[in-house]
C-alpha cells in the first residue's frame, strides 16, 4: 500500500506519483462533493502530515478527497489543478510548488469557479486565493536564532545551511535568522550554503565546510532535513559539541533533540494549518462568511529538550 492509500481509511484508487498518474482518490460515504488536496512530495514527513490532516478533516466534514503531489513542479501543479477542476472538485487545498509562480494556476481555478485555500506557502497576489494560511516563519526562526545565539555564548564561528532559497519560506527564515544573529558582532558566519532542503546535500555541504573551517562551533539550518544532515556530518567527524539548530519539528528532529544532537528547533503546526484550511474552504462552500483575513499566520513552537516529548507528527500536545 503506498503513501496515498495510507492517508485514507477507505482509499479506493491509489496510483504511483509519476507525472502521468491520475489523481488518487480517498473516498468514504461523503456526499458534499470532492476537495482536491495538492502538496509537495509525500515522501517528506511534513507534506505527508499536511495531506493527512487535510484529508482527515475533509472526510470528517463530509467530502471526498483527491490527494496528489506536484513535487515542486509548477507545470505538474498546473496539470493537477486543471485535472481537478475538470473533475468538478468543489475546492482545492494547495501547498503550492513555487510561491512566485503559482498565482496564475490559482487564478485559473478561481476563474473556473473553484476556490483555493493555500497552506504553508503564500503567493504575492491578494484576492486570488480564498485564504492563505502559513507559518509565522519570522517568529519561529527568530526564536530558534535567539536560542542558538544564547547557547553559543553570543560568540564563535557558525555556519548557515539554508533550506531552499527558491522557496520564499526559506528566504524568510534566513532573513529572520540574520535579523537576530547579525546583532552579535562576535558571532561570525564562516560559511553559508543552500542545501536545498535535503538531508544528503546538507551532509555533503557540512563535510566540505568542516574541512575548511575546523573551528566551527555552531550550525543553524533552515529546515529539519538540513539540520539532520549537518548532524550526520558532525557525528561522522566526531564534532558532537557543535551546537545545531533547525526548523520543522519532525519526529526525527524531535528524537535528535531528545538525544542531545539538536539543541533547538521550531515545530511547524502542519496538521493544524492544513485542517484549518479545509474548515475555511468548507465554510465558504456552505455560503458562510467565515470572516477571517486572507493571510493568516500560525505560530512555530520552540522545541528544546524540555518539551520535545510533546511533539508528534507536526502536532504539539499541551499536556
Amino acid at each position: 500500500m503506498n503513501t496515498l492509500c495510507r492517508l485514507g481509511s477507505a482509499c479506493l484508487v491509489t496510483l504511483a506519483l509519476g507525472a502521468a498518474a491520475p489523481l488518487a482518490v480517498a473516498q468514504d460515504t461523503a456526499d458534499k462533493g470532492t476537495i482536491a488536496i495538492l502538496v509537495n512530495s509525500l515522501d517528506n514527513p511534513y507534506y505527508a502530515a499536511e495531506a493527512h490532516a487535510a484529508d482527515a478533516k475533509a472526510r470528517e466534514l463530509g467530502y471526498q478527497t483527491l490527494i496528489q503531489s506536484h513535487n515542486e513542479d509548477v507545470n505538474r501543479q498546473r496539470e493537477l489543478i486543471s485535472l481537478a477542476v475538470g473533475r468538478g472538485v468543489k475546492g482545492i487545498v494547495l501547498d503550492n510548488a513555487d510561491s512566485s509562480a503559482s498565482g496564475a494556476a490559482v487564478q485559473y481555478a478561481k476563474d473556473q469557479g473553484v476556490p483555493t485555500v493555500l497552506i504553508n506557502r503564500e503567493i504575492p497576489q491578494d484576492g486570488v486565493a480564498l485564504a492563505q494560511l502559513t507559518h509565522n516563519n519570522v517568529q519561529a526562526a527568530s526564536q530558534v536564532a535567539q536560542a542558538f545565539v544564547e547557547r553559543m555564548g553570543e560568540q564563535g564561528e557558525y555556519v548557515e545551511l539554508t533550506c531552499n532559497l527558491a522557496d520564499n519560506n526559506c528566504v524568510t527564515r534566513s532573513e529572520a535568522f540574520h535579523q537576530v544573529l547579525d546583532q552579535y558582532p562576535e558571532m561570525t558566519m564562516v560559511a553559508r550554503q543552500d542545501a536545498k532542503g535535503v538531508l544528503l546535500n546538507a551532509k555533503q555541504s557540512m563535510d566540505s565546510i568542516l574541512q575548511e573551517h575546523p573551528n566551527v562551533r555552531g550550525v543553524i539550518a533552515g529546515n529539519g532535513p538540513v539540520a539532520l544532515g549537518a548532524i550526520a556530518s558532525l557525528q561522522a567527524a566526531r564534532r558532537d559539541q557543535v551546537v545545531v539548530a533547525g526548523i520543522d519539528g519532525s519526529n526525527d528532529e524531535r528524537d535528535a533533540v531528545r538525544a542531545g544532537h539538536l539543541y533547538a528547533t521550531a515545530m511547524l503546526q502542519a496538521q493544524r494549518l492544513a485542517s484549518d484550511g479545509v474548515v475555511v474552504l468548507d465554510a465558504h462552500l456552505a455560503g458562510a462568511d467565515e470572516g477571517g483575513p486572507e493571510r493568516r499566520l500560525y505560530r512555530g513552537i520552540l522545541i528544546t529538550e524540555d518539551n520535545a516529548g510533546r511533539v508528534k507528527d507536526f502536532s504539539y500536545s499541551d499536556e
Partner: peptide, 13 residues
C-alpha cells in the same frame, strides 16, 4: 497587522 503588509520579511523589518 500582518495582513496589511502581506510579506513576513517586510513585517519583520
Amino acid at each position: 497587522s500582518y495582513d496589511d503588509f502581506g510579506d513576513q520579511g517586510a513585517f519583520a523589518r
